[in-house]
């Protein structure tokens, strides 16, 4: 179990026990941000490398053939783009899904518990044509794979 995971479980428990004040006093929670587990810096970062730095502590990513990002070649509706990341790497700790041309590139980060395999599937929004990048953290290192998706109607604007 990674340290990140332990911290989250600790946060959950301290919240459940109603000792939010204690956690806040120890500096774990910012006063207005009860949901401190959510990585605000990473999810508000407009830059890909900044988001990775904030989320995973590094933006040093190497491409890997062991990761498959499944996505349509052409997405007619950018509001719903099915994405599957399948990593055949042992000891996957987390999988991040990034739409590189979105206003906020980091779409989702899945933290896998012990026993979970390197597989996630979800649906994301894409503002315009761009690469969908799957960043997999395994054994403390970052690996990635990408796939270009052409978007005909963007799904982020109004």
């Amino acid at each position: 179990m990674s340290n990140e995971m332990k911290r989250r479980i600790f946060l959950k428990r301290s919240l459940a026990a109603g000792s939010v004040g204690v956690a806040a006093a120890t500096g774990l929670l910012a006063p207005q941000q009860v949901l401190a587990a959510w990585n605000k810096a990473a999810f508000e970062s407009k830059e890909l490398s900044g988001a990775l730095d904030a989320l995973l502590g590094s933006s040093d990513v190497s491409e890997s053939a062991d990761i498959k990002v499944k996505a349509p070649d052409i997405a007619e509706n950018g509001a719903v783009v099915p994405i599957t990341v399948d990593a055949s790497i042992d000891g996957v700790e987390s999988i991040a899904i990034i739409a590189s041309n979105n206003p906020v590139p980091l779409v989702a980060n899945f933290v896998m518990g012990p026993g979970a395999t390197g597989f996630v599937s979800t649906r994301i929004k894409m503002g315009k044509t761009g690469d969908v990048v799957g960043v997999v953290k395994a054994g403390g290192k970052l690996y990635s794979a990408k796939k270009e998706v052409k978007v005909t109607i963007g799904g982020c604007g109004g």
Partner: peptide, 18 residues
């Protein structure tokens, strides 16, 4: 077994599988 953090970039009525 799985914990996900999302931005608003996940589609409306989200679907996940793992």
């Amino acid at each position: 077994v799985m914990m996900a953090e999302w931005s608003g970039g996940v589609s409306k009525n989200p679907y996940i599988s793992f």
